[in-house]
């Protein structure tokens, strides 16, 4: 029974999250307050949105580590477009353009991977570096401090007292589920990742599928930027630094294989939940000042533990 549960990554992770929540809320009941759960969900929203894209990239047998710098460029260009002291574009135009830039960068990654045959880790590593430099150049040493109210609403507004970012996340999740289960594209992505040769022989266009997953990730990164950056009043040049590692960690902890073909949305969701709650948990445990310096090590051990437990179980299954 237990091995059955643990065999399915999502269930194992879910139980682990439950255990962690129980322990923390036993020590500090404030952890379970509605406000805190809502805050955690809002924090997790952008990571969750991007992870939906990166998961499909991994399933297709590629990887995307450029999303952090993409967010930087997107935030900077969005800020400049809407800022009252810069371009002053109407908010809906700026939103549309931001989404287009996101798709554009994703397509650029995808073209190089699919049609020029450059390994995705290299393309996206190059983009990670180059786009960070580009962000600095776009910002030119000044931050954007005057986002208009319409844009701030994307990050701080609520509909039926649920934050907009959560509605967006729900929408993206629904679309991803639909994409995976109800459209031929979903099946093709999995087929491409698990056996590219066979997929090719079966007449699938591997190239267009790869192009699609990168463009999709670019679009989702733009969506995540739009709903998360306006939570803050200042757009700085460091937005998104390190997001790529967090997203890849979430996706991988959620059981997605870096060899392609394997990955479930439920697993990824649990991965995102675990990774975003760890640091909150550490604060709620009130471990004292010395423990602050150990928090990165504790987070690392959590990741290591999740990965090793999974491998141990799957090795024993055989």
């Amino acid at each position: 029974m237990i091995t059955y549960l643990l065999r399915h990554r999502a269930i194992g992770l879910f139980l682990f999250i439950g255990l962690l929540t129980t322990v923390v809320s036993w020590i500090n009941p404030a952890f379970l307050s509605a406000q805190n759960l809502r805050d955690i969900a809002v924090q997790a929203a952008p990571i969750c949105i991007i992870s939906c894209g990166v998961m499909l990239v991994l399933v297709a047998g590629e990887i995307d580590i450029s999303v952090g710098s993409m967010m930087g460029v997107l935030a900077a260009s969005m800020g400049i477009m809407v800022s009252a002291s810069r371009a002053q574009l109407p908010p809906h135009v700026a939103i549309a353009l931001t989404l287009l830039i996101g798709i554009g960068m994703g397509l650029f990654n995808g073209l190089l991977v699919a049609y020029a045959g450059v390994p995705s880790i290299i393309v996206t590593l190059g983009m990670l570096t180059a786009l960070r430099g580009l962000t600095e150049i776009i910002m030119n040493g000044a931050w954007i401090t005057d986002l208009p109210e319409e844009i701030r609403f994307l990050g701080t507004g609520t509909i039926l007292s649920v934050p907009l970012s959560l509605w967006t996340t729900a929408g993206v999740l629904a679309m991803t589920i639909w994409l995976i289960h109800r459209t031929p594209i979903g099946r093709r992505i999995y087929a491409t990742g698990s056996n590219p040769q066979a997929a090719q022989l079966a007449g699938l266009s591997i190239k267009s599928i790869k192009l699609f997953v990168f463009a999709w990730t670019g679009l989702l990164t733009a969506v995540a930027t739009l709903v998360s950056v306006p939570q803050l009043s200042v757009v700085d040049s460091g937005i998104g630094v390190g997001t790529e590692l967090l997203v890849v960690t979430c996706v991988v902890v959620g059981g997605t294989s870096v060899n392609g073909g394997v990955g479930t949305l439920s697993g990824v969701l649990c991965g995102v939940a675990l990774m975003t709650m760890i640091s909150t948990v550490l604060i709620f445990l009130k471990l004292g000042e010395h423990a602050t310096y150990w928090s990165r090590a504790i987070q690392g051990l959590f990741i290591l533990g999740a990965i090793l437990a999974d491998h141990w179980i799957s090795n024993h299954k055989k």
Binding site: D39, S228, L232, G238, S279, T280
Partner: peptide, 18 residues
């Protein structure tokens, strides 16, 4: 970590935990 988002989150968490 020089990340405005993280500063935001940490402050939020601290207000609730303390």
């Amino acid at each position: 970590d020089e990340d405005q988002k993280l500063a935001f989150k940490v402050t939020q968490d601290l207000m609730k935990a303390y």
